[in-house]
């Protein structure tokens, strides 16, 4: 584990997580959540858990983002709160 890479990735994870729950546009929120998943995938790859990173990249960053986008496409794009 190389600590400069680690610090950069973890700060990106925190930024993406906070941004994903604070934006009003749900489509941006879904995309930010995908970015968050991808950063988690990088973090796991750095830690050597390549299988977990692979699963996160396919399920978290790939398919679940598509499901969110499809659900937003069928409902509304703006959050009410």
């Amino acid at each position: 584990m190389i600590w400069p890479i680690d610090i950069i990735i973890i700060s990106f994870v925190v930024i993406c997580g906070i941004a994903a729950i604070s934006v009003k546009d749900l489509l941006s929120s879904a995309i930010l959540f995908g970015a968050y998943s991808f950063m988690m995938c990088l973090l796991w790859a750095v830690m050597g858990a390549v299988d977990v990173a692979f699963t996160e990249a396919t399920v978290g960053a790939g398919v679940s983002t598509v499901f969110f986008v499809a659900a937003i496409f069928r409902t509304s794009r703006r959050t009410r709160d």
Binding site: V50, D51, A53, F54, T55, T58, V59, G62, V63, V66
Partner: peptide, 13 residues
Amino acid sequence: PGGGFQGGVILGA
């Protein structure tokens, strides 16, 4: 690295 879950998700994607 890989296996049924990851490959299946890639096929679904």
